[in-house]
Design a protein around this nucleic acid. Structure first.
Lengths: 247, 247
DNA sequence: CGGGGGTTTGAGTCCGTTCAAAATACGTGG
DNA sequence: CCACGTATTTTGAACGGACTCAAACCCCCG
């Protein structure tokens, strides 16, 4: 329950360059005119966060959007009873905070660094200005939001129709793309950035159930777990998990 | 399974006037400059649909957005196995189809009229033009999309934490706002626009379970059902349903 | 070495599902 | 207008997945 470090403040570091940023090309910011990249470059504020530190907190006013340079972030929502549940993850190259930014300006979630993370903040005024001068930027965010909505609705259908075990397989498959290393023997290895509690949150389940599913998965030879380390001996076995129920 | 009438075609009717449209003022279209309302007024295509007719179908290219003048529409998604599930409803005054429009241009859902319905279609080129000339219009859609995402994520959390009965109460409460009439004795009456199957889809459940919940609700005096007609004798009783589990 | 959080295991229970059949509503043609 | 066939809704019984509660376990760190 106690989430490591509390300080949102973070040391300012030598700022990266927006012009050469590998991520900008692939994000909504690629729509920017050259002169506007300059605006971005000058107005962004770059910070670093240790694991457990918060980038922003639920309830705070949302005064801009964030872009992750390096690292990963957990987006958590706290319900009235005080339970924090993980609703989403964001990784390097992704923009975040735009939902609350466009919706009304108050964060409805908190963002916590899952690993050492470096983030650029672009303030409200700059975003507004860039938006005004680059209609394509707005279109980019519209596309992004539309995609997020798609994902949210899909997982709504998924949660209704699929078993927890199958959803776990989906999650492993998604994490694999980002965290897995291929070993010499053809197996995959990864270190999960998530606790069992976090996994349970994502699956809409409980830690006990997650433990039992992990146990079952090991028994069936689909994956082997030890703490946060996972070995997937045969990807096809994992793929079979999702075939069975959704095909 | 067989969904009434199939014809998407619909008779063209005397077009309503965008300038005096009561709905425009309250929607994203309120951001339009006066001359652009003229564009809207001239380029929109208004059609009527009988109950059961489709406004658009999953898989078709999405060539614009729709605005409902009168009536109600069911948004359904068909999974690979061919099961159609109701994912959303849209009512008079609401814009629809914008998600797929901004996402990529193919409908990921089908829209079926739940009652006699009249709809204005605004084609892609006009939307693009209006978007270019009115940055505020894009902002309006961003806000709308952000709100939709909020709703989708909330119901994701809701489905994980709340019982089906509680979600049913939520649904009744939501439908009440739009369909209920207040009776002389203080009770509320409404005719549901949804089948039991549709209700089950929304709740992420089964028709049998819905029937049983209805039964339980009647036993507890929360609501009385006869076919699609519902009587809610005491709104507070219904509100208690959601308090118990979410407060 | 002794917490303390996170994780695993166990037993029992419940909600919602599945399968199956009866009952009711509905539209259509005679 | 009624009879009939089909679709929807309701009821019943039995099963099962996931939850709850509770205790043991384990690993990291001071």
């Amino acid at each position: 329950m106690a989430r490591a470090n509390d300080r949102t403040a973070a040391a300012s570091v030598p700022a990266p360059n927006c012009f050469t940023c590998q991520w900008r090309q692939r994000s909504e910011w690629c729509a920017l005119a050259r002169e506007d990249v300059l605006v971005l470059n000058e107005h962004k504020i770059t910070s670093t966060f240790e694991q457990g530190q918060f980038v922003f907190r639920q309830g705070e006013p949302c005064n801009g959007v964030y872009s992750i340079v390096i690292g990963a972030v957990a987006i958590r929502k706290t319900d009235p009873q005080g339970h924090a549940v993980l609703v989403r993850m964001r990784h390097a190259g992704e923009t975040m905070g735009y939902r609350d930014f466009f919706a009304g300006g108050v964060f409805t979630t908190s963002a916590e660094a899952l690993e050492p993370t470096r983030i650029c903040f672009i303030d409200k005024r700059s975003v507004r200005m860039l938006l005004d001068r680059n209609p394509a930027l707005g279109l980019g965010f519209l596309k992004r939001l539309a995609g997020d909505l798609q994902i949210a609705e899909d997982s709504l259908l998924m949660s209704a129709a699929l078993t927890t075990r199958t959803r776990m397989a989906h999650l492993l498959l998604a994490l694999k793309d980002r965290y897995a290393n291929a070993e010499a023997d053809g197996s995959l290895t990864m270190k999960l950035p998530l606790s069992r509690q976090d996994i349970a949150d994502i699956l809409g389940s409980r830690t006990e159930t997650v433990a039992r599913i992990i146990q079952a998965l090991e028994k069936d030879g689909v994956a082997r777990f030890s703490g946060r380390n996972v070995v997937i001996p045969d990807l096809d076995r994992l793929l079979d998990e999702i075939e069975d129920e959704s095909a």
